[in-house]
Amino acid sequence: EGEAHRVLFGFVPETKEELQVMPGNIVFVLKKGNDNWATVMFNGQKGLVPCNYLEPVELR
């Protein structure tokens, strides 16, 4: 579910809505907001990550 994206930079959450991710993680974007935040799914957890920390990736 969602579009696959690769994480470019590590992100440490500052609020409980945000999700910690590391460079190279593959996350699935469920929704992109107008505020430059994306709702993503990673390892069964859902949370917010900055859009500019993500790049689309083709999964084969």
Rank of each mutant, 00 (worst) to 15 (best):
L59H: 11
R60I: 13
K32P: 04
N43R: 12
T15P: 05
V7C: 04
G2P: 08
V40S: 03
N43V: 01
R60E: 15
F28C: 07
I26D: 02
F42S: 11
T15W: 03
E55G: 05
M41S: 13
Y53V: 12
P23G: 04
M22N: 13
P50Q: 00
P23K: 11
K16T: 12
L30H: 08
L19F: 07
E55C: 05
F9M: 15
Q45T: 08
K46R: 12
V57H: 07
N34I: 14
G24A: 02
Q20R: 14
M41F: 13
Q20Y: 09
K32W: 08
K31V: 08
K32C: 06
F11W: 11
V40F: 00
V12L: 11
V12G: 06
A38I: 03
H5L: 02
T39R: 09
W37T: 10
M41G: 05
K16N: 13
F9S: 14
L19W: 03
G33L: 13
R6P: 01
R60A: 14
Q45D: 15
R60L: 12
P23R: 07
F42R: 10
V21A: 04
P23A: 10
E3N: 09
L30W: 05
L19M: 11
E3S: 12
A4V: 07
L30F: 03
A4E: 07
G44S: 04
N36Y: 04
Q45W: 08
M22P: 09
G2Y: 07
L8V: 08
G33K: 11
P50E: 02
G2C: 04
G10H: 12
E17M: 10
V57M: 12
N36G: 15
K46S: 10
V7N: 03
E58H: 10
M22T: 14
F28E: 14
G44W: 00
A4F: 10
N34V: 13
P56N: 01
Y53Q: 00
E14K: 15
V21Q: 00
V27A: 01
V12I: 14
K16A: 12
F28N: 15
E17Q: 11
L19S: 04
E3P: 08
P50G: 04
A4D: 03
M22F: 11
V12F: 12
V27I: 01
T15G: 11
V21P: 02
N43M: 07
M22A: 15
A4H: 06
K16V: 09
R6G: 01
H5F: 03
F11E: 02
Q20G: 12
E58I: 12
A4T: 07
P50S: 01
K32N: 03
E58G: 14
N34R: 14
L8P: 00
E17Y: 10
E3V: 13
G44N: 12
L48R: 15
N25M: 09
E14A: 12
Q20L: 11
E58P: 12
F11D: 06
M41E: 15
P50V: 02
G33Q: 14
A38D: 01
V40Y: 00
L30A: 06
F9K: 15
L48W: 01
Y53T: 07
V29K: 05
V57T: 08
K32G: 05
P50D: 04
P13Y: 01
V21C: 07
V57Y: 09
R6S: 04
W37K: 14
L59E: 15
N34T: 15
L54P: 01
G44E: 07
K16S: 13
V49F: 07
G24R: 02
I26T: 08
T15N: 13
F42V: 05
P23F: 03
A4G: 06
N25F: 01
L59F: 12
T39C: 05
P50A: 01
M22V: 13
F28Y: 15
K46V: 13
T15L: 09
E17D: 13
E55Q: 10
E14V: 11
A38N: 06
G2V: 04
K31N: 13
P23N: 02
V49P: 00
M22G: 12
V49M: 12
P50F: 08
L48N: 08
P13M: 05
N43K: 13
W37I: 11
N25C: 09
M41K: 12
R6L: 08
